[in-house]
Each structure stands twice: as structure tokens, then as C-alpha cells.
Nucleic acid binder design. Structure first.
Lengths: 99, 99
DNA sequence: TTGAATTATTGTATAAATACAACAAAATTA
DNA sequence: TAATTTTGTTGTATTTATACAATAATTCAA
């Protein structure tokens, strides 16, 4: 099967938790170089390995991996905050006495 | 890497939509026998293939695949309905005049 | 009941995923 | 600054995922 190159957030998630590739590799039970290959997109993981990474970070697979280039998390957060502001304007407060 | 046997709901989802392995295979671009191997758990898919199956069914990967044996959907639905009943008892109706 | 479609099984071949080794470069720490 | 750790690169080997072929069994439709 022709494999699409997949994208992932492994490096960012590692950085957030201040752990090295070696540490992550030990935790999920693979060679440390495998983590490097995955981060650089040199090959895609098996689904089993994707589950292991998902379980380690406590995040859904679809949050970590994607078939399309992923936006930086910072950008996604900003977009969510804008959306939140929009919602606040369209739906005034129901709870509380004052608007 | 030692591969864990993964579990999946491919067969049920196919049945729900009344499509054969051959049809699914053609849609996601694999040999029809590959679908059979996956359903029977003879080997696990690559993450890319898992994404293709996920996209076809419009369901999250974690809904279709699991590292543990999955409960029948019917059982999960019943559990959710029970949970719903529990919630209705603990939180009486806020909207509407009558309870 | 027959024919077609679908599925199961076995085997071979190929491609991709992963481990490991060795070496080098870059980054970090003391 | 030197030592250590982390990361990148290349190569080889092994395992797993997938395609394809052939055959048989099962299921479904007419």
C-alpha cells in the first residue's frame, strides 16, 4: 500500500513535558532512534505504536497524528479563544442576575 | 517491536452499512483480503490505513480500534442509557415549567 | 438448485516499520 | 572548557504489513 506521509506533534508534546527522545522511547518500549524517525516523518508508526504514544501522553491519536499538516498548538489556542469570545457575544449570560 | 494484537469494530460497522469487505477495500484503496486479515486480527494496520478506515466511516480511530477487547456496541448503548437515566434523576429539569 | 458473490486459507513476494551499530554533530551540563 | 547527553545520518538485519495468486468454502441472489 502506498503510504501517505503523516504528521505528528510528538516533538512538541515532548518539549512541553521536558523529556528527551530517549526517555519517551524507554517509556513506550522502542528504540530511541525510532522516535527520531517518527518525529522527522521518515516513516509512519504502526497503529499499535501510535496507541502507545497516545497512552503515554494521555491524548487521542487524532490529536497527536494527522494526515494533513497540523497547525501549531499556539495557533489553535488563539483560534479557540476567538471562538470563545464570539460565543460570549451571541449568547449573553443565562446564569447570574446581570448581563 | 513486539506487536500487541489490536481489536476493531470494522465488521460491525460494515454490517451496519450493508457493505462487503470488497466494497470497503475498494473505497479505502487496499486489497480486499487485507480487510479480512484486519477483521480477523491476523495483523494490525498501519496508522495510515487506520486513518483511511476512520475517514471512511467518519469515526475516531479510538472508536474503531482498541488495545483491549471491545464491548459490543449494543452493550455500550445500554450502559449509556442507564447513565442517562441516572443523570435525569440527579438533575431535575431546568428548562420547561413542569418537571 | 445453480450461479455469482463473498469470505477463508495457504503460499509467495514486496514494501514498510523497527532494531541495532557506528559515527558524527549539536546541544546541554558541570 | 571539557564531558556528557541528545540528536542526526548511514547502513544492515529482522519483523510486520500488504499485495497478489490460487483454491476452497460459505453465503446470497435469482
Amino acid at each position: 500500500m502506498e503510504q501517505r506521509k503523516l504528521y505528528n506533534r510528538i516533538a512538541v508534546l515532548r518539549e512541553e513535558r521536558d523529556i528527551s527522545r530517549k526517555e519517551l522511547a524507554e517509556k513506550i518500549g522502542v528504540n530511541y532512534q525510532t522516535v527520531g524517525y517518527l518525529e522527522r516523518g521518515e516513516y509512519n508508526p504502526s497503529l499499535d505504536l501510535a496507541f502507545k504514544i497516545s497512552e503515554f501522553f494521555g491524548l487521542p491519536i487524532e490529536f497527536i497524528f494527522s494526515t494533513k499538516p497540523m497547525k501549531p498548538l499556539s495557533e489553535e489556542i488563539l483560534n479557540l479563544k476567538k471562538l470563545e469570545e464570539t460565543w460570549k457575544k451571541e449568547e449573553p449570560q443565562k446564569d447570574g442576575a446581570q448581563g
